[in-house]
């Protein structure tokens, strides 16, 4: 299995994540797309570590999963606080910061 297949699969996942972050207005979808991008990074780490037969890649995956978990936890805490404050989680309603 040439490694380009794994990398192009990761590339497609990463691009889906990027488009999700850019196009979606609902914050929940933005957070899910960020999870998708982090998974694409994980895939590159694992296939790289299998290819180079060096296990550091797999250890980095543990750290990336931990960071993704903390990011999702705090992100969703903010979603709940926003929803309590604004009653909606559509990003176009948060105009308070605008000058």
């Amino acid at each position: 299995m040439p490694i380009e297949y794994y990398f192009s699969l990761a590339l497609v996942m990463f691009l889906c994540g990027v488009c999700g972050v850019l196009f979606r207005r609902n914050i929940l979808f933005v957070l899910m797309s960020i999870e998708l991008m982090l998974n694409a990074v994980n895939l590159v780490f694992v296939s790289g570590s299998t290819f180079l037969k060096n296990l550091d890649g797999q250890i980095m995956v543990f750290f990336v999963i931990t960071v993704a978990a903390c990011e999702a936890a705090v992100g969703l805490a903010m979603v709940i606080a926003l929803f309590r404050r604004y009653g909606t989680i559509k990003s176009e309603f948060f105009r308070i910061l605008r000058g």
Binding site: L9, V12, M13, C16, G17, C19, G20, F23, R24, F29, M32, S33, L36
Partner: peptide
Amino acid sequence: TLSSVAVV
């Protein structure tokens, strides 16, 4: 690929 496009 299908499911990641579906997520978005």
